[in-house]
């Protein structure tokens, strides 16, 4: 389903979508990082510098249909409205985690911030900032993510999946984003010739 970049929203914020169906998002949310209640969430901040204009990088990220290309993990993202999308992320043991993400702050060329709505399997909130780097270095891209692992069996699976890897998954996505924006492609060796015993392993693994 094609998804157009949201036409330049009034910058700065507190603009919350009227179509927020479950009505759980407080209307005064203006900044990212506050949707995980009681400040008990796990926080991750990762940054990378990309030799491209902030506007170009922002435009790629603002179109959520682009994101599965850079997230190195099975994920389906279904845009629902200009501000809201449904995320389906695979978890260990064939489980799926789902949530609705809603953009709560959208400053073209500078910032996108989002948070999940109340029914999320994993409550999370985050932002991505695009700021000019010194000299001719390009643009500093910083992702802040805060999430609250749920209780129960799914919670255990989520914890297993994310305890060590949330930061590295965010960083991995940033590295892939950088490679795609700068070099035009994300490096890989998957599918290249290998000798035994890797040949046998290569057949078993990988999507």
């Amino acid at each position: 389903m094609p998804y157009a970049t949201h036409p330049s929203t009034p910058s700065s914020s507190s603009v919350l979508p009227g179509e927020d169906t479950d009505g759980s998002a407080p209307a005064d949310v203006a900044s990212p990082g506050i949707s995980v209640p009681g400040n008990r969430g796990i926080k991750v901040v990762r940054a990378i510098t990309i030799r491209e204009k902030p506007e170009t990088l922002y435009a790629f990220w603002r179109n959520v249909s682009n994101l599965p290309r850079i997230v190195n993990h099975p994920v389906t993202i279904l845009p629902r409205t200009a501000l809201e999308s449904r995320w389906l992320v695979s978890a260990p043991a064939g489980r799926k985690m789902e949530w609705n993400a809603i953009i709560i702050n959208d400053e073209p060329g500078q910032l996108i911030a989002w948070r999940t709505t109340a029914d999320a399997d994993v409550a999370n909130a985050g932002s991505i900032r695009f700021a000019p780097a010194p000299g001719d270095e390009g643009t500093e891209v910083t992702v802040s993510l805060e999430y609250n692992p749920p209780a129960g069996k799914l919670g255990a699976a989520v914890a297993k999946l994310t305890r060590d890897s949330a930061g590295s998954q965010v960083y991995d996505a940033l590295r892939r984003f950088k490679a795609l924006m700068e070099a035009g492609e994300i490096p890989t060796t998957y599918g290249q010739p290998v000798g035994g015993p890797q040949r046998e392993k290569a057949r078993e693994h990988r999507p």
Partner: peptide, 24 residues
Amino acid sequence: SCGRCTHCLRQQFSACDNTNPNWH
């Protein structure tokens, strides 16, 4: 070397940012 990252443009080709899939 990708030829388009900052290191490549500075002719620091062996420091290319975008050709090592095992960056981790």
